[in-house]
Design a protein around this nucleic acid. Structure first.
Lengths: 285, 285
DNA sequence: TTGAACGGAAAGGTAACACCAATTGCACCA
DNA sequence: TGGTGCAATTGGTGTTACCTTTCCGTTCAA
């Protein structure tokens, strides 16, 4: 179903949006750089209408500003909608994907404990039941060392919490969190057998949510994220792909795997077409 | 500089984007509702090109989906880019502004401690100096009960932390956090004289950041947010504007004040024009 | 030196057109 | 009755041509 949209339903403006978005996100078109509609028409061999639509979208993302008589100016990163999935994706595909990955993980660490606490208040009965069920399942699967299935249930666990939080802003992060978790297992970066502490903490989170104990849910989730934090902390120094990353090999390998582990929904339709400018760089997360 | 853009640079597509965005965010155009370009052309008396550009922007925000032969379909809220400033603004202007305010405050509570911790690692020397300076200033102003100035410096304090975190996603939330803080003082909802504990905690955060003690900065900031949390916790039950809000009067009054306390940058240019569909509802935050 | 007027560049907007994809409905056959 | 397939219709997609509006840079005059 995706591939059909890929060749037919995509639209002409999409590739040019993608290309220019990547170039801006990569810094190839630095802030202050000026484009013109005529230039875009010519470069991509499209009509004025299509060029304008692509610019309008970039403008709505804060990546460019269009002014009469001047042209289309690239804006500084401070003006970008850094939460826009497309922008996230472009930055993850470009040279500063390390920085973007760090900010995303940092965001995840910030949000998940609160989401767990909120879920303890806001979850439906079905969600509470499911979260307990999942925690029990995780223990069974973990003891059986069924890593593949463990991972899938773990993803479901975290997605469920974010969505059950009743906060759509938290829920919107579910996709990203799921990608990180999937990636870790897929690359064999999880322990061969999950440590008992992890399963105890999943249990604690689940029980707290089921019984509406918000503070406990939050605390337990925070404990669950300690491992992620310690993996991330050394990574807070800026670096380029050229330099060896100063952080743990876990995240490093997550970033550099091929094929990519995750493609945001908004880009999925065109991904299989292999039209990406940085094929080896689109790994991420 | 804003007013100039207001009458001239705005563009024809902007009002129709605003109107339709609000209507979708308000649920007046529910998920599944189908629009057509012809309908939009006629309703707003604009050309096809303009109508299409507006739709493209809404589409990039995930609010609608355009399909041949079918028309333009409103998508469910789960597909929206809920972090897009325009979407935030529309939701804050509509009937579910209570929910949006809650999610934003929840996000703030999640993010600020991590931002403080990150700032302890990533802040520049100038930023570290400034944050200490601000904390000292806050103590002086607080003891002198100079509320107006206290608030301004407090806003600067929190904005500085979010920006010094080195995480643009955190930095992007500075505007919203600033609005909440300004609003509280502006409505006289802060204590007449800030409590000493608050100033102690500001000091603690500042010192920890200045000296690079991440964990301490995070903990102190979390303590600083306790008050916000307790004000928010009762508010986690869904409610409509009709029902009396179950939470503290603080947030309630923040939400219902007029004139509005904050308008996002992306909407500022057109706000003074008084063309808003819900003039009394655009208060927020 | 300053400032007012002017030309032109580039985006903004309109209109009309051909095109194409998908849906719908009808006819036909099993 | 029900499923298959063809064809008409509908509504977005893309192109082109043309005009309007803004405002930057230059130039000319006070």
């Amino acid at each position: 179903m995706i591939e059909r949209r890929n060749r037919s339903g995509a639209g002409l403006h999409d590739p040019i949006l993608e290309k220019l978005g990547m170039e801006i996100a990569a810094g190839e078109l630095p802030a202050g750089h000026v484009l013109t509609l005529d230039g875009i028409q010519e470069r991509f061999s499209v009509s004025r209408t299509v060029a304008r639509e692509a610019m309008r979208i970039l403008e709505s993302m804060g990546l460019v500003e269009s002014r009469r008589r001047v042209g289309i100016t690239v804006r500084p990163i401070a003006d970008w909608n850094v939460f826009d999935p497309k922008v996230i994706w472009w930055r993850l595909s470009g040279p500063d994907r390390g920085a973007q990955l760090r900010t995303l993980t940092e965001l995840r660490i910030a949000v998940e404990p609160l989401a767990a606490g909120a879920a303890a208040r806001a979850a439906t009965a079905a969600q509470r039941a499911r979260v307990v069920e999942l925690a029990a399942l995780l223990r069974t699967l973990g003891e059986a060392a069924d890593l593949a299935e463990f991972m899938e249930r773990d993803v479901e666990f975290h997605e469920l919490l974010l969505q059950a939080s009743g906060n759509e802003m938290f829920g919107a992060l579910a996709e990203v969190v799921a990608a990180v978790l999937r990636g870790r297992t897929q690359l064999g970066l999880m322990p061969h057998k999950p440590v008992p502490e992890a399963m105890d903490l999943h249990d604690a989170v689940a029980a707290a949510i089921a019984e509406g104990r918000c503070a406990e849910a939050e605390t337990a989730m925070r404990a669950l994220l300690v491992e992620v934090r310690t993996a991330m902390l050394p990574g807070l120094v800026p670096w380029s792909p050229r330099d060896p990353p100063p952080w743990s090999t876990t995240l490093w390998r997550l970033m550099s795997c091929d094929p990519p582990l995750w493609v945001p929904r908004c880009c999925a339709r065109r991904f299989p077409s292999c039209a990406l400018p940085h094929p080896t760089a689109c790994n991420l997360l």
